[in-house]
Amino acid sequence: MPGVSLRIDDNEVDASPGESVMQAAVRVGVKVPGLCQMDGVSVVGACRLCMVEVAGTPRPRPACATPVAEAMDVHTDTEQLREHRKVLLEMLFAEGQHVCAVCVANGACELQTLAAQVGVDHANFTPPPSRLTMDLSHPRFGYDPSRCVLCTRCVRACAEVEGAFTWGVAGRGREAHLVADLGRPWGEAESCTSCGKCVSVCPTGAMFEKGTSVGQRRVKRALVSTLTSRRERESAREVLK
């Protein structure tokens, strides 16, 4: 397949058709911020942190969901984009209760990293009522909705990779929140296989393994993509046998 060449922040990039701008950018060392995008599951383009400017389009576009095109001219770090990212992150902080000092993910939190990168310091929060109660009913895992950023990486990993469909989003607008099965405590969710994929991919400390203490949790964002690409590769080999 013939490749595509485009410019990302004044770097010449060769990409294959079907790749996203975000994927192509990584290869030339341009890291576009993002929370909801994760290799191995579907793209939703919901966090809007990865907005980039594409010459000739009226408004910024999400890099995760924009396919590369020949001669595209992309800017990922303009004044306006920086300013907007800052406001978006402030909104995220305002929606939850992100107190790093007491969080299992302290030091490994993607939100924390982004905040440092974009230059946001945070203090104020008014989480909606639906996101206030911690769920510790599962024998191995815990869920703290006030740290959830609604990236839905867990929902997609659970549905698309594990096939359990335990997690879902209920409510709407500001009242949107995660639910397990029919909204019962996680420990009572019959469909949960306790595989832990949701926990591995959570970008913050909203989902954690019990017994992890402050600052111990590590995000395994690559877990899911390793699984899916391995599955694809190995099943292809099966076919060839």
């Binding site: 919901a46 809007r48 909104m91 995220l92 305002a94 609604l150 709407r172 607008g173």
Partner: peptide, 18 residues
């Protein structure tokens, strides 16, 4: 708009509230 926001994307969900 706040009541009717679907909650999927951050700017609309949190921005209409603020």
């Amino acid at each position: 708009c706040m009541d009717e926001s679907c909650g999927k994307c951050l700017p609309c969900r949190a921005g209409t509230f603020e």
